Amino acid sequence: MKRRSRLTTIGVTAAVAAAVAACSNPADGADSGSANATAAGADEELSIGFFGFAKANSFAQATWAGIQEVAAENNATATFIDSNFDGPTQVNQLQDAITSKAYDVVIVQANDGTAMVNPVRQAVAAGITVVVEFTPVGGDYSTAEPQVEGTITIIDPPTVNGEGLAKMALDACPTVTDGDCTVAYLQGFENYPLDAARTEAAVDALEAGGVTVISNLVGGYTADTGRAAMQNLLQAHPEVDVVIGSAQAIGGAAPLAEGKNITFVGNGASTQAYEAVQAGRWYGTYALPEKQEGAKAAELGLAAARGEDVPESTVACEELTDYDCLGTKETLAGKTADYSD
């Protein structure tokens, strides 16, 4: 059942001091002291700063492509600020941007959603329109609702992502009676808060589904790390039936399973993942159309900065797909991917 998006006006009030906002406790949830910028005119050129995961990451590049297209069509410029997957670097970059007043709109794809709470609060207090994209900013990874007052969110909650991966893996199992199916979940980054929440949700759902779960291997986000994890998995657990991992990791892992009765579930909407599912080499992939999400983030941010009412919260997989991101051969039939790994 679809959740209704609440409307918020990112409008015209005076900004509270950034120093006060910075003292707020991230655990308190929504900030009650945020404020918004004076709305820009329709003919005024605006600037977007995209604080993405990493320029070298194909997923972030898909987001960036969507942002650039919308910026070009809506009298705006866009800049990719590259943190290269480093949380503290990203925090410093956003704080520098606030000080320099470099951007009217910032789109935050947080490496560490908890660490970004205070700088995001400071950005809102400074009158910058803030769109939180993909990763929640706050301590709760199970919700798409804003956790910092005054922000706009377009998010697929990581726990929902994990549960979706588990659902496809359970469907892919030849049988789930008496733990007969063994599913390996290859983690992304071992100490990454988003990955920790997604992994826990996936493992809980798999165990509730009655399968045997292996979740102590890190597959990462490259073909090389996926291949290394698969080698270790096959040595320790040759009986594995289904393997879940990032689309990049599964791209490296799957060739090692040739001739074996192993099914794969990816996490990503790349060209390679779509082709693997459509050709029947993988059972499915969690297919969030990330370029569309980036475009939507830019669209919402620019509209809000110009004084329009926009949804406060958008659940990406509900709003941007008709298949809740569960990309099986059936649901991806006739569809094309947003990006390539």
Rank of each mutant, 00 (worst) to 15 (best):
N232F: 06
V218M: 06
P255D: 08
P238T: 11
A201F: 09
G219A: 13
G188R: 00
G226M: 13
V243K: 04
Q187K: 08
D224T: 15
E207I: 00
M230Q: 10
T225W: 11
N216V: 05
L217E: 09
P238M: 08
E190N: 07
A202T: 12
D241R: 02
P193V: 13
T212Y: 08
A236W: 02
D224P: 12
V240H: 02
A229G: 04
V213G: 07
L217P: 05
G209Y: 04
N232E: 13
G219Y: 09
A254C: 02
T222E: 12
S215N: 07
A196N: 11
L194H: 14
V218Y: 06
Q235C: 00
V243G: 06
R198Q: 13
A197Y: 03
I214C: 08
G226R: 14
L206Y: 05
A249G: 11
D204W: 00
V211D: 01
Y221N: 15
M230L: 08
G251K: 13
V203K: 01
D204R: 02
L256F: 10
P193C: 11
G209M: 02
G219C: 10
E200Q: 14
T222S: 15
P238K: 08
A236Q: 14
V242N: 02
L217M: 12
N191I: 07
Q231G: 13
A202V: 03
D224G: 13
L256Q: 14
G245Q: 01
A196F: 06
P193K: 10
A257C: 10
L194T: 15
S246C: 05
G209I: 03
L186W: 00
D204P: 00
A247P: 06
P193Y: 10
E200V: 08
L234Q: 09
A249W: 07
L217F: 06
A257W: 04
Q187M: 00
Y221R: 14
D224R: 14
D224Q: 15
L256W: 10
G188N: 04
I244N: 02
